[in-house]
Write a protein that binds this DNA or RNA. Structure first.
Length: 255
DNA sequence: ATGGTTGCGAAGCAA
């Protein structure tokens, strides 16, 4: 079973690239983030034509997450518990091919110490609580998405250049570690321990071609699922060419 | 490597 995650930065703008990618990468499940599309106007038919069922959670303008699957899509749950993340549209889950799959878009945080940064840390804490309430680490669980955190210094291009900015601070990394401590492992890292295998590059200043990026898009797997991981890849080709997202998709094959 | 680009939506913000 091939599981993928991709921050598409507007599904409306990216639909041709997503369709192309589904055809050649052939994931069984694709989690998307920053779809920026309302549930009512989600391109369900276009994805159905490629053999994928869809479920989404979005308000149409900001954020938005989706899961598309060709191995079943059941028990869809949107947001955290009632009253939390009602406007954010940053998390949803579905059961696909026997795996409880989550698509998450962690808040960016903007500036270290700002209210948005504190909200990011609170959101990550809520994600840990949500997993405790709604899933079991002994089952087949995948938490996929744009975490807006580079797990360690292998995942950034230069420690000094980024000092003082978000995505690399200890509180963010500890919050991610607390989520992993629930019972998840970084699937991509199981199969690749090299540095500078980035998943996101700023559109500006030719950063992609200068190899100035971060690895912030992660596929976290429960242990039983992680044990079966056989192949993982960041598809940098999807970051090239006409109208790319600023993120590349990440995929992993599990049994 | 502090200067840039893209998306949304129609100016300026978020990333």
């Amino acid at each position: 079973m091939r599981i993928a995650t991709w921050n598409v930065n507007s599904l409306n703008a990216r639909l041709p690239r997503v369709e192309e990618w589904l055809e050649y990468a052939a994931p069984d499940v694709l989690c998307m983030q920053e779809t920026k599309v309302a549930e009512a106007s989600f391109p369900t038919m276009a994805l159905s034509a490629l053999g994928y069922e869809s479920a989404s959670h979005g308000d149409g303008r900001w954020n938005g997450v989706a899961i598309v699957s060709r191995v079943g899509l059941d028990d869809v749950a949107r947001g955290f518990e009632p009253g939390v993340d009602e406007q954010g549209c940053r998390i949803m889950a579905a059961t696909c091919g026997g795996v409880r799959v989550h698509s998450v878009y962690v808040p960016n945080g903007r500036v270290v110490g700002s209210e948005h940064y504190l909200a990011k840390l609170a959101w990550l804490d809520e994600l840990r609580s949500h997993l405790e309430r709604s899933a079991s680490p002994s089952e087949r669980v995948a938490v996929c998405g744009d975490f807006n955190i580079a797990p360690d210094d292998r995942d950034i291009y230069d420690r000094q250049a980024l000092e003082g900015s978000t995505h690399i601070t200890e509180p963010e990394r500890k919050a991610l570690a607390a989520i992993e401590d629930w019972g998840l492992v970084d699937g991509f890292r199981l199969l690749h321990d090299e540095d500078e295998l980035f998943t996101w590059w700023d559109y500006r200043a030719g950063n992609f071609h200068k190899h100035l990026g971060m690895r912030i898009d992660l596929i976290l797997l429960s242990r039983s699922l992680a044990e079966t991981a056989s192949f993982a890849l960041v598809d940098r080709n999807a970051r090239k060419g006409k109208q790319p997202s600023d993120h590349a998709p990440v995929l992993i094959d599990v049994a």
